[in-house]
C-alpha cells in the first residue's frame, strides 16, 4: 500500500501551509479520484507521492518502507503536458526505453504506431505524445500511477482510449492509480472513491493566496 502520513508542504518558512497533516492511502489495484479547486495542492501532493518533492512534514511509505531513492521509482507521475516530460533531443524509441521498455502489448493497447518510434517528440501531436508518456510508465516496475490531469489537454476520443488502456493494465497488474482531475464525470467513470483536498488552514486566506500566486498550482 502507498501511504502518506502527516504530509505537509509549504514553500518557505514564512509562507502558509499548502496542506498539513494529510493522510493518504492507495491500495494496489485501486483507482482513487482526487479533486479540489486550483491552488489546493493536488499537483504538489502527486509530486510528493512520486518522490519529486520532499514533503516539509510527514513521510511517504510503500508497504511500510520508504521508497527507493535511486533507480526506477515505483510511483510514476504522468503530468498534463507530455511535451515537458520527454527529452526533446531523443527520438521516441529512446524515450520509451529510458526506464523499463514497455511490452509490445502495452504499445498495442495504447495504439502506438511503430512508425512513431523513429520520430522526434515535436513531430507527434499532444495526444500521441501522451500515449508515449503513459506507455513509458506501464511496466512491471511501476506499482502506483499518479495521473495528474493526464488527459485534460486531449480530445474525448483519445481520452477514452488512453483511460481504457490504463484501466485494463492497472487491473491486470494490480497498479494503484490516483486520478487527479477537474472533470467530475471522468472521475465518477473511473473511481469508486473520491477524495477532496481540504481547504488550506484558516491562517491562509484567499487574499493571501492571490497575493502569492506561486502557491497556486494547476495553471
Amino acid at each position: 500500500m502507498l501511504k502518506g502520513e502527516g504530509l505537509g508542504v509549504r514553500y518557505g518558512k514564512q509562507l502558509p501551509w499548502l496542506f498539513q497533516d494529510l493522510e493518504v492511502a492507495l491500495e494496489p489495484g485501486e483507482m482513487v479520484g482526487l479533486t479540489a479547486p486550483s491552488g489546493r495542492g493536488k499537483t504538489t501532493l502527486a509530486r510528493v507521492l512520486a518522490g519529486y518533492l520532499r514533503p516539509t512534514a510527514g513521510i511517504v511509505t510503500i508497504d511500510g518502507r520508504p521508497p527507493p531513492t535511486t533507480g526506477y521509482h515505483p510511483v510514476q507521475l504522468i503530468a498534463q503536458h507530455p511535451e515537458l516530460a520527454v527529452n526533446p533531443r531523443w527520438r521516441i524509441g529512446r524515450v520509451l526505453a529510458e526506464g523499463v521498455p514497455p511490452a509490445p502489448a502495452v504499445l498495442d493497447a495504447l495504439q502506438i504506431d511503430r512508425g512513431w518510434l523513429q520520430r522526434w517528440p515535436h513531430e507527434l501531436s499532444g495526444g500521441e505524445l501522451q500515449r508515449i508518456a503513459v506507455a513509458r510508465a506501464l511496466n512491471p516496475q511501476t506499482r502506483y500511477l499518479m495521473a495528474d490531469e493526464m488527459t485534460a489537454m486531449l480530445d474525448a476520443a483519445t481520452q477514452a482510449q488512453i483511460w481504457h488502456a490504463v484501466t485494463v493494465y492497472a487491473a491486470a497488474h494490480r497498479i494503484g492509480v490516483l486520478v487527479i482531475s477537474h472533470d467530475a464525470s471522468l472521475i465518477s467513470r473511473l473511481c469508486r472513491r473520491v477524495e477532496v483536498l481540504p481547504e488550506p488552514p484558516a491562517i491562509c486566506t484567499a487574499a493571501q493566496m492571490d497575493a502569492e500566486p506561486g502557491l497556486r498550482g494547476g495553471h
Binding site: 495504439q111 504506431d113 512508425g115 474525448a156 481520452q159 483511460w163 471522468l186
Partner: peptide, 27 residues
Amino acid sequence: PYTRALWRALPSQGFVPLPGAQPAPDA
C-alpha cells in the same frame, strides 16, 4: 461517424474508446 465517436467517448456519455489513431500528415 467521427463526430458521433467523439460524442460517445465523453465520460458523461458512453466513455466508449475509439480504436486507432489519426493518420500522420505524411501518411
